[in-house]
């Protein structure tokens, strides 16, 4: 197992996906604007699809299953981005800010 043979090992892809997932969670907790949190959630979604693709390539008997699942994740992510961005624009119109701490209208 040399360093040039890493692209044929399942665990390498799992580790990359775990790294993307951890960075997405870090950004989700660390960011203070709604758009920054949306960017982090896209990282988490792409980590999940990378896992599906890796399992479909190395372990699954039907290699199309993971690819179709990843296609559906892409469709859901596009819908999620569109909805979240229109919510962010509506929030900006009402509060003149997309800081997560300013959106506190229900706080009383």
């Amino acid at each position: 197992m040399s360093i040039l043979n890493l692209n044929n090992i399942l665990e390498v892809y799992l580790a990359i996906a775990a790294l993307l997932f951890g960075m997405g969670i870090y950004g989700m907790l660390h960011r203070r604007t709604l758009i920054g949190m949306l960017i982090s959630s896209e990282l988490i979604l792409s980590a999940a699809s990378l896992n599906f693709m890796a399992f479909s390539r190395f372990l699954a008997p039907d290699p199309t299953t993971g690819q179709i699942f990843t296609l559906f994740i892409m469709g859901i992510a596009a819908a999620e981005a569109a909805i979240a961005l229109s919510i962010i624009i509506a929030v900006y119109r009402n509060y003149k800010s997309i800081d997560t701490e300013d959106v506190a209208g229900l706080q009383g």
């Binding site: 799992l14 996906a17 775990a18 997932f21 951890g22 960075m23 870090y26 907790l29």
Partner: peptide, 9 residues
């Protein structure tokens, strides 16, 4: 984030 990465990897 680092704990999640470490555990899942």
């Amino acid at each position: 984030g680092a704990l999640l990465f470490w555990g899942m990897a």
